[in-house]
Simulated scan of single mutants.
Amino acid sequence: MDDNNLGKKFLPVTSVASGDGRYAAEDIYCLPIQIVNVFFIGDPDKNSEWVLIDAGMPRSTDEIIGTAKELYGEDRPPSCIILTHGHFDHVGALVELVEHWKVPVYAHELEIPYLTGRKDYPEPDPTVEGGLVAKMSRMFPNEGIDLGPHIHPIPVDGTVPGLAEWRWVHTPGHAPGHISLFREKDRALIAGDAFVTVKQESLYKVITQDKEIHGPPRYFTTDWKAAKESVKKLQKLEPAVAATGHGMPMSGQELSDGLAKLAREFDAIAKPDHGKYVD
């Protein structure tokens, strides 16, 4: 199993929220790590199984393991790890976590080539407008990683391993096999990067975590038509609370109004005016 040296990468960008974990729902714990979120799903008080969603930035292994111990106690690894997609800031600690916990990892079948060392993602596009993070994206790794036998395609029937009440939704655009997770009973949504609650291209807004619903991070999004349809698909679910890959959890009227506006005005709000992946 090879991490393609991801663990040696470090990006000197950190938001004011980094390390300040909070609950998006009673059993959904959101941990910001630098500029990205990881999610722990499972009620610590019920001594039941829990699942990790995404694996954060490079060099975040100790923070993720430490948070898991604080929430669930010693010797309680997750039943599995689910990936919304395989970009570097969502798999940064993955190789080390798998080696530590010895648990399976699940992702959409279209992401598997990037998680078995067979393909690299398209290079980020630093030419899109939006702010300094977009310009910095030329430094972001786009290489795939190799998880070997530890990576598995998520079941095609929409079920989510380890999370009986959840189902996954294919939300491509930002990545070919990007998925989001939805729970009907409380209308909770883990959106990944299908949409986010911060303008991720702007360094100022990333650092301050200025909250606003925005499209997927522009510098890594390669299919804007699919990204638009994915936002519309998620908006139709009418989520009551959304936890996204970047930015703070959002709920209620703020979420419903913002997501409806994004779906309605996607080209004006989310799609950049120019860039190598813009039609």
Rank of each mutant, 00 (worst) to 15 (best):
P12E: 04
S256F: 11
L6Y: 13
D257F: 14
V105P: 03
V206Q: 12
P217C: 13
L203Q: 06
I207F: 09
P32M: 09
D20M: 12
Y29G: 07
D89H: 12
K135Y: 12
I269F: 11
V16I: 11
W168Y: 03
Q34L: 15
D45Q: 14
K8E: 10
E229M: 14
F140I: 06
V231I: 12
D62M: 15
L189I: 10
I28L: 15
I190L: 13
A243Q: 01
L255P: 06
D273R: 15
S48M: 14
H87T: 05
R264M: 13
I269E: 10
L71S: 04
A242Y: 07
G92P: 06
A175C: 07
R138H: 12
I33E: 09
D20Y: 09
V13W: 04
E201F: 09
L132H: 01
M248V: 13
I112D: 00
V241E: 03
V160H: 09
L262D: 01
V196E: 00
T127M: 09
E63P: 02
I179S: 04
F40K: 05
L83A: 03
L110T: 04
N47E: 10
I151C: 06
G173P: 03
P161K: 04
E49W: 11
H150V: 01
A227R: 05
F10W: 13
E109G: 10
W166S: 05
Q253D: 15
P155H: 06
Q253L: 15
S48A: 15
T67N: 13
L31M: 05
S230N: 02
D62N: 14
S180I: 10
D157R: 05
F266A: 01
I64K: 00
E265P: 00
E184Q: 12
Y106M: 03
K261G: 09
G162R: 07
Y72E: 01
R218H: 05
G21A: 14
M136S: 11
Q253R: 15
G21N: 00
H178R: 06
V103S: 11
N5L: 14
D157L: 00
R138I: 15
E123P: 11
M57P: 10
G258A: 02
T159L: 11
E70S: 13
H214P: 08
K261N: 08
V13S: 07
A188E: 13
K199C: 12
D186V: 08
H152C: 02
R183K: 04
K46P: 01
G192N: 07
L259E: 04
R138T: 13
G86L: 02
G173M: 06
L262A: 00
D193T: 11
N142R: 04
K276S: 12
H246N: 10
E26N: 14
D2T: 02
K225C: 11
